[in-house]
Design a protein around this nucleic acid. Structure first.
Length: 642
RNA sequence: GCUGCCGUAGCUCAGCGGUAGAGCACCUCCUUGGUAAGGAGGAGGUCACGGGUUCAAGCCCCGUCGGCAGCUCCA
């Protein structure tokens, strides 16, 4: 073989001689592209244009202005960071220093962890080196010469890694910045240290050589870099805004939930948080009713035998809680599916009953390592808006489409846009025949096509028991949250020996669809807190309106209006404190309550309310009945605006 | 779980070897004031817990618990 077949992003392919470089490929495509190319992805891996092509593969070229060019800037910033660290800490050993979605990091072995002061000095040194503008120069050598070079530089860990690279037989490249810095690196990089327009060191933390906790402890320096100061600033502001919206902070400020030593990883829900909870359940329940689901409830504690049968004991034991009583062992459920299967089995099912849709707001417990707990986003006990649909194989597509509709509707009501969809297909290690996998994957892809939405395929990322769809929401800060999921399962019906009687009066195996829309209610509330920055739409707001009597002369009127509002199904409070109106307004704003209703003697006399919407100006006095009806309507319609 | 940092009044934090402080919140009193903090007084802490060093320990050391950040987006 003397040629390699190179596939371009548009699906076209061209043949180039073996050992051509990516730059040669770019030149073949066009001179303009060759000129603007700064790097490329070869088979998904970031590569320099000098990369040699040693076999067939796919290429995607990164040009100067393209969004991916930021990877070069960040990767180069990582080198600049390492250069600064070596300058200040000559004994430091270099680990890896890649670009990431948010910025870059570089790992070092140093005697003492970096202090905030060190980070400041490192950043200052980086600016100094950047000002010198040393160019990045690529040097290629064979592995033997590379080993010698690494020994000369004293890079022990890199030398260790080189041994692995040798096995692949690639040419080894170094990127050298004058006499100040040299690093073994596949590239690509920007032209020089001076060509990193904007960067910032952010933090330091612990890490391990190659992620192995039993291995060498390292210090990781995190930073970020952007093509312009303006973009860097915007990014830092976004990070700052996210910090302000942190649901852990807002959760206690707004009295929604709390965490305590007495139950690490388990939220305590306060009355305000329970309102959110109930509203979300109501929303989902309405949809369940409309779509012919039946809601069930299954036990939290089930015997070990069940979990052996379901396979959880073999695959999920480390995440499960166990209890012993009367010499029997029980497990607290980490998932709701086995319970649903038991309910399915309580009757002989006919094909006429299918699809049988069993929904459950099921509380599950999953043991998580203490270090990964994170507010409501990662807890040890939570409630899923779970459902299990039992159907015949040819009903899969219709059922999936129904789930997609429900998902879209619920997300829209919550104020999120169209989710990103990922289709994960059969993994190498799987259960079930290829025939049924073909059918299942086809059904999911078919449902998505018929539904008319874009999706991304993730080959081999499916569960061993079936393919799945995952849904990523984007919040108001542009962050992604994986919430919904639709998973096909051929294994569970098998393990629980589930059957239905078909029209042929023979017994058949149903297919099971696991699906969740919100995923974890607890986590979804955390996402909503951050999405809305605590300023919930009326229907979700724990307190929808606050009545503010100007003096206690109008307290009786305020109480009377509050009673009428409660009768209309609204959640209201009266600020009965002996405070001036300014203080009451201020505190009401702090509580992020949608409507502040001022009632003084004028209002009491006229039967009106002075409406001050959250984030707005005084709308003046309006008839109380009108105001109540307006808020009630917004509540009932789940309006997103005030 | 591992590494680093942190744990003082309900909350946010100061104090860093010599017998516990502020602001906010809370309670009482005065004030009855129209759209982002009216005034005065009061109560509230075995300084996470357990050991140790010291004449003396929130303050130093060790351990435990809890919290925060990070922990294979691989040259």
């Amino acid at each position: 073989m003397t040629v390699a077949r190179v596939t371009l992003p548009d699906g076209k392919a061209l043949e180039v001689p073996l050992n051509s470089t990516c730059a040669d490929v770019a030149a073949r495509i066009g001179p303009r592209l060759a000129k603007d190319a700064v790097g490329c992805f070869w088979n998904g891996e970031l590569c320099a244009m000098e990369q040699r092509i040693t076999g067939d593969g796919q290429i995607r070229i990164i040009t100067k202005g393209s969004p991916d060019a930021i990877l070069l800037i960040r990767h180069s910033a990582a080198h600049l960071c390492a250069a600064a660290v070596l300058d200040l800490f000559p004994d430091a050993q270099l680990g890896f220093g890649p670009p990431t979605a948010e910025g870059f990091y570089y790992d070092f072995v140093v005697k003492e962890p970096f202090t905030p002061d060190d980070l400041g000095r490192i950043e200052a040194k980086m600016r100094e080196l950047a000002a010198q503008g040393l160019p990045f120069e690529r040097k290629e050598m064979d592995p033997a010469a590379a080993g010698k070079e690494l020994r000369r530089l004293g890079y022990k860990l890199k030398a260790e890694y080189l041994e692995e690279l040798k096995l692949k037989g690639d040419v080894i490249s170094f990127y050298v910045n004058g006499d100040r810095f040299s690093d073994m690196c596949r590239g690509p990089h920007v032209a020089s240290f001076g060509a990193i327009p904007a960067f910032k060191i952010l933090s330091a933390s612990g890490a391990y050589w190659r992620g192995d906790a039993s291995g060498i402890a390292m210090q990781r320096i995190h930073g970020t870099a952007f093509p312009s100061e303006a973009e860097l600033k915007k990014h830092l502001e976004l990070v700052e805004e996210a910090k302000k919206r942190d649901h852990r902070k807002l959760g206690s400020e707004l009295d929604l939930f709390s965490f305590h030593e007495e139950a690490p990883g388990f939220p305590f829900w306060h009355a305000g948080g329970v309102v959110l909870w109930r509203e979300l359940e109501n929303l989902v329940r309405e949809e369940l009713m409309a779509r012919g689901y039946r809601e069930v409830r299954t036990p939290l504690v089930l015997t070990d035998e069940l979990w052996h049968r379901s396979g959880h004991f073999d695959h999920y034991r480390d995440n499960m809680y166990f209890v012993e009583k009367e010499e029997r062992s029980f497990a607290v459920k980490p998932m709701n599916c086995p319970g649903a299967c038991i309910v399915y089995r309580t009757a002989m099912r006919s094909y006429k009953e299918l699809p049988l849709r069993l929904a459950e707001f099921g509380m599950v417990h999953r043991y998580e390592l203490s270090g990964v707990l994170h507010g409501l986003f990662r807890v040890r006990g939570f409630v899923q808006d779970d459902a299990h649909v039992y159907c015949m194989p040819d009903q899969i597509e219709a059922e999936v489409i129904d789930c997609l509709d429900m998902l879209e509707k619920v997300y829209k009501v919550l104020g999120f846009g169209v989710p990103e969809i990922k289709l994960s297909t059969r993994p190498p290690d799987r259960m079930g025949s290829d025939e049924i996998w073909d059918k299942a994957e086809g059904a999911l892809a078919g449902a998505l096509r018929n539904w008319g939405k874009q999706y991304r395929e993730a080959p081999q990322e499916g569960n061993f028991y079936g393919p799945k769809l995952d849904f990523d929401l984007t919040d108001s800060l542009g962050r992604k949250w994986q919430c919904g999921t639709i998973q096909l399962d051929f294994q569970m019906p098998e393990r629980f020996d589930l059957e239905y009687v078909g029209s042929d009066s023979a017994r058949h195996r149903p297919v099971m669809i696991h699906r969740a829309i919100l995923g974890s209610l607890d986590r979804m509330i955390g996402v909503l807190v951050e999405h809305y920055a605590g300023k919930f739409p009326v229907w979700l707001a724990p307190t929808q309106a606050l009545l503010l009597p100007v003096t206690d002369k109008t307290l009786p009127y305020a109480r009377d209006v509050a009673a009428r509002m409660r009768e209309a199904g609204l959640r209201v409070d009266v600020d009965e404190r002996n405070e001036k109106i300014g203080a009451k307004i201020r505190d009401g704003i702090g509580r992020k309550i949608p409507y502040l209703l001022v009632v003084g003697e004028r209002e009491a006399a006229a039967g009106t309310l002075s409406v001050r919407p959250r984030d707005g100006e005084d709308r003046g006095a309006l008839p109380a009945a009108e105001v109540i009806e307006d808020i009630r309507k917004r509540h009932a319609s789940r309006a997103l605006d005030l």
